[in-house]
Simulated scan of single mutants.
Amino acid sequence: MKKLLLCLSFLVLSFPLQAGTSLIDQLDQLDSESIRLGSISAAVVEIESGEVLYLKNGGSVRPVASITKLMTAMVVLDADQPLDEKLTITRADRDLLKNTYSRVRFGSRLSRRELLLIALMSSENRAASALGRHYPGGKEGFVEAMNAKAASLGMLRTRFVDATGLSPGNVSTAGDLVKMVRAASGYPMISEFTTQADHVARFENPSYSLSYVNSNVLVRRGSWDIALSKTGYINEAGRCLVMLTEVDGRQVAMVMLDSYGKWTPIGDAGRIKRWINTGESGTIAGAALRYEQSKSGQDMQTLAGG
């Protein structure tokens, strides 16, 4: 029987596709053994059907860095606070965890709408912090709302501790993040802001302007049909990327967590797309492959240790 199944799989994967179709048109033809990604955890789901096309360490709980800001945005919009209200960036918004740099000056004022835009598009941490701080109940109330929202979405292995994602205490799984991507895509403003290529923010008190670009190079290039995007990075999380993109007319959620270097999640996105279209993902760069093998080995040791 095993030999028969192998033969059938070979015949299915070898049979030429009809013109104008890809493997995603025939989901049962996708072979998870034919895809290799550099990301330590990953999930690929066809949104309309809910079909899980690929899962790699999908239940492994990991820091998610600025992917957190998708939840931040949903909580802000759910609160229905005035989007035109000007909020002030203060020293309470400085990063005391990672000491990351921000060009936004203390005392600057910007509308809630634009703070949301630069937090999502360019991952501006002071903007995300200010949004949480100006929530009813302050930062504590905001984090409570984030976790309540996650629970309502069935993200049972997810926990948030801040609005920025700078804390490694913001954790989730690839499987849970698919749920968050799906939910976030239902907010037109989040879809719009995460797929905007660039923006010039004009601050008040003092008056100055800052130019921002999307942190996802695939959005900036404009060669992909992307409906939602968010990048993330801290040392503990590695490079992370989530996207909702169209492949041959179907919406596909891609989640990639803990990759080596800023280009590996971009490369993994390309490998996923290639795998969906051709059945083969292609190769991984040597440094990224060594990182993946090393981290996978650490995961196995952790599991063995209980």
Rank of each mutant, 00 (worst) to 15 (best):
Leu131His: 06
His134Asn: 15
Ala145Trp: 07
Pro136Lys: 09
Ala130Asp: 02
Leu131Gln: 11
Arg112Gln: 14
Asn125Pro: 13
Pro136Asn: 05
Ser122Tyr: 08
Leu117Asn: 04
Ser129Tyr: 06
Ser122Val: 02
Leu131Trp: 08
Ala127Trp: 13
Arg113Met: 15
Met121Trp: 06
Asn147Lys: 03
Ser122His: 09
Glu144Ile: 02
Pro136Arg: 01
Glu124Met: 14
Arg112Cys: 15
Ala128Asp: 00
Leu131Tyr: 10
Leu117Asp: 01
Arg126Thr: 13
Tyr135Trp: 14
Glu144Cys: 03
Lys139Asn: 14
Leu116Val: 13
Ala119Trp: 11
Ala151Lys: 13
Gly132Trp: 11
Ser129His: 11
Asn125Asp: 14
His134Pro: 10
Ala119Val: 08
Ser122Trp: 02
Glu140Thr: 12
Gly138Pro: 04
Phe142Leu: 04
Gly141Asp: 05
Arg126Phe: 12
Ser122Lys: 08
Ala150Lys: 01
Gly141Val: 03
Ala128Pro: 08
Ser122Gln: 01
Arg112Val: 15
Lys149Asp: 00
Gly141Ser: 06
Leu115Asp: 03
Gly132His: 13
Glu140Pro: 02
Met121Gly: 11
Lys149Val: 06
Tyr135Glu: 06
Ile118Glu: 11
Ile118Lys: 09
Asn147Trp: 03
Leu120Met: 02
Asn125Ser: 12
Lys139His: 07
Met146Trp: 06
Ala150Glu: 10
Arg126Ile: 08
Lys139Cys: 12
Met155His: 05
Arg133Phe: 01
Ala128Cys: 13
Ser123Pro: 13
Ala119Arg: 01
Gly141Ala: 09
Gly137Lys: 08
Gly141His: 12
Asn147Asp: 05
Met121Asn: 02
Ala148Cys: 06
Met146Asn: 11
Leu131Met: 04
Glu140Phe: 05
Glu114Trp: 00
Gly154His: 00
Ala127Tyr: 12
Arg112Tyr: 14
Asn125Gly: 15
Ser152Gly: 14
Ala145Met: 08
Gly137Trp: 01
Leu117Phe: 05
Leu115Ser: 02
Lys149Tyr: 10
Ala148Asp: 03
Arg126Leu: 12
